[in-house]
């Protein structure tokens, strides 16, 4: 279980003192195994929020605890151990382009192996076996020796998912997983994420722009506006009024209409 309490982030910079903080006093509890979508306009703080959870961005104030382990206010070693329990998936995949698919997947184990073992690419047998299993599971069997830059967008995101899962995480932090993908691939990737989280009883925070896609796949939606939580509820509780409170005035009738899921995969 992840608990976030009073999370505030103020970026330092020229006008930092006057400007609004990126996040102010965010409280959230994500129970074990829950898939949560984070929606909100650009600049609302979605990306900052998930980066504060694994402290890629250092929070200004607040407390983050994952499965009883403090994430905030700890030293480098404890932080690294906490990061192992949080897999991260990125908008533009953030794979190491010049490394092979297998090296990219195994890089998810870097927190567990020593420098020389990782430098010489001698990972434990169990890790390699798990990497093969995961690649098979996401439909990339036989692709292990391809270079990451040879893959299509959907395939790259699948490698990104394997890299996150091989960490054996308790929580996935997912930053706009489908923003660089076409609608069909987006749905396939979302469906895969949902299935994998269910198989492994994983909690996940998914930043997503596509409200309809979020409604289709995710049981809980949190709306963020200007760094504050303004909505927290199931997808069918999203009304034109709540969307207006998150994004501002707009005609929302087309957005909320249930989207038909295309079955051809």
């Amino acid at each position: 279980m992840l608990s976030i309490a009073g999370l505030t982030k103020r970026y330092s910079g020229k006008h930092a003192a006057q400007s609004e903080p990126a996040l102010s006093g965010v409280d959230l509890i994500v129970p074990k195994g829950q898939l949560m979508a984070l929606i909100g306009p650009s600049g609302a703080g979605k990306s900052t929020l998930i980066r504060c959870v694994n402290r890629l961005v250092e929070p200004t104030m607040g407390r983050i605890v994952l499965d009883g382990q403090e994430v905030t206010g700890t030293g480098r070693t404890v932080l690294r151990h906490a990061r192992r329990r949080m897999g991260m998936i990125f908008q533009e995949y953030a794979l190491i382009e010049r490394l092979t698919v297998m090296e990219n997947v195994l890089s998810g184990r870097l927190g567990y192996v020593g420098f020389f073992a990782s430098w010489s690419r001698r990972f434990p047998r169990a890790d390699i076996a798990e990497a093969f299993r995961l690649l098979d599971r996401v439909g990339l069997k036989g692709m292990e020796d391809k270079r990451a830059d040879e893959l299509s967008g959907g395939q790259r995101q699948r490698v990104g998912i394997c890299r996150a899962l091989i960490q054996n995480p308790a929580l996935l932090l997912v930053d706009e997983p489908t923003a660089s993908l076409d609608p069909k691939t987006s749905r396939q990737i979302m469906r895969l994420l949902v299935e994998l989280c269910a198989e492994r009883d994983l909690a996940a925070i998914v930043n997503i722009h596509d409200v309809a896609l979020a409604q289709m796949f995710v049981p809980r939606i949190v709306g963020l506006r200007a760094g504050r939580v303004v909505f927290d509820g199931p997808p069918d509780a999203l009304t034109p009024e709540t969307l207006t409170s998150i994004y501002g005035e707009e005609d929302w009738s087309a957005t909320i209409r249930p989207v038909e899921d295309d079955a051809d995969e």
Partner: peptide
């Protein structure tokens, strides 16, 4: 960022 997020140490980040 992606490699740091896995819990890798600074030399592993350099190497990967």
């Amino acid at each position: 960022e992606a490699i740091r997020a896995t819990g890798a140490g600074p030399f592993q980040v350099l190497n990967y």
